[in-house]
Design a protein around this nucleic acid. Structure first.
Lengths: 196, 196
DNA sequence: ACATTTCGATGATGACCATCATTTTATTCG
DNA sequence: CGAATAAAATGATGGTCATCATCGAAATGT
């Protein structure tokens, strides 16, 4: 049956949101169109009324995932951001977590259009950390470089910690060690910024 | 036809080596048994004479991948290791590169047995960096913590750089920035080690 | 109110996939 | 040498996948 124009848009949004979660949990290749549609509350057939291909959806879901993440980290201190990001809670809930950490490895095998969305997402994450790094000081030094390094270490930490077995000592050690090291990097960037 | 016992072992090794490369290039799910066997120079049927399941091969290929990597980094200075690891050459040749960076994201969806191999590989990488960090000094401080942070940042950098579009400015910026930051971390760890 | 459009459901398509049974062929072991 | 064995090839199985054609029904535009 047909459905109201607004309702159709809501349905479309729900498909994208469901995909954004499922992809982070199972990978781009781990989610079939039929399975996805069922999780969103539909049968498989309607999919191609909304998207030209699965690849299109992958691109949209990537944007959606980064948007969810960055809204949650908007306007928080860099220390708080790292405390939230490099945490067991984040590691153990990939479906609601960072797309870069969950799907960065999958992204390599995606077309340029999708990878372009990843670059935008990484750029946005970096900007958030950089903003959270800016202290009362003048910010002479390259805060962006510090932010980029912190983002790489944080995403790497979550990915590596997830790759370890459940309840592995190493998995937790990676998290704790990298959190502490990122805290140091934040402090160092700030003191350089004030001094500069 | 049947084949000499030694030849059969060589064939098996070749399948594992081919898998180790192909998996890093296309992901665990991106390589089918038939395709893999063909790349190794066989037809698909013989696969199950060598392995009980594809999952078994995934585990073995992971070990093989880390072994290849760690042999290449054995006995090198930490600076040199990072210079080799965080490089365009490494980023652009995933099939010969680090399994953690290429397959860490895929590992989450693998059984514990495979993840256990990943933990061993990460442990080995960390040990190599830690050893390369030890200077003439007494090594009072926690070099392992520094090494783990460096490994996380390095793997994260390669993963994120690969996720960006080809010829993207961000992709190269990630590499250069993280290499410089890892160099600083190495220097810092060493001076603390000497002072301690 | 009626014709048109379009959302969503049903079902089919052809291509892959992992896995296994069978056969052929050659080696290994007694 | 002969019997048992095992590696590799061939071919089939049942499952899943992305994509598409079709159709019913309801909302939209006139």
């Amino acid at each position: 049956m047909r459905v109201t124009k607004q309702k159709a848009q809501e349905n479309r949004d729900r498909i994208v949101a469901t995909a954004a979660s499922l992809f982070r949990e199972r990978g781009f290749d781990g989610v079939g169109v039929a399975d996805l549609m069922e999780q969103a509350g539909f049968t498989h057939g309607g999919f191609y009324n909304h998207f030209r291909s699965k690849e299109d959806l992958v691109g949209e879901a990537t944007i959606k995932g980064f948007k969810e993440l960055n809204e949650r980290y908007q306007d928080v201190d860099a220390m708080t951001a790292i405390d939230l990001y490099i945490s067991r809670e984040h590691r153990d809930a990939p479906a609601q977590g960072c797309p870069a950490a969950a799907l960065g490895g999958d992204a390599v095998r995606q077309p340029e259009s999708v990878r372009s969305n990843f670059a935008d997402g990484i750029e946005a994450m970096t900007a958030i950390i950089e903003k959270g790094l800016a202290s009362a000081g003048r910010g002479e030094t390259d805060l962006r470089a510090s932010a980029l390094g912190i983002v790489a270490q944080a995403a790497g930490a979550i990915m590596l910690s997830r790759a370890c077995p459940d309840d592995s000592a190493l998995a937790d050690e990676i998290l704790e060690t990298c959190r502490a090291q990122c805290f140091s990097l934040i402090e160092a960037a700030r003191s350089r910024s004030i001094a500069g």
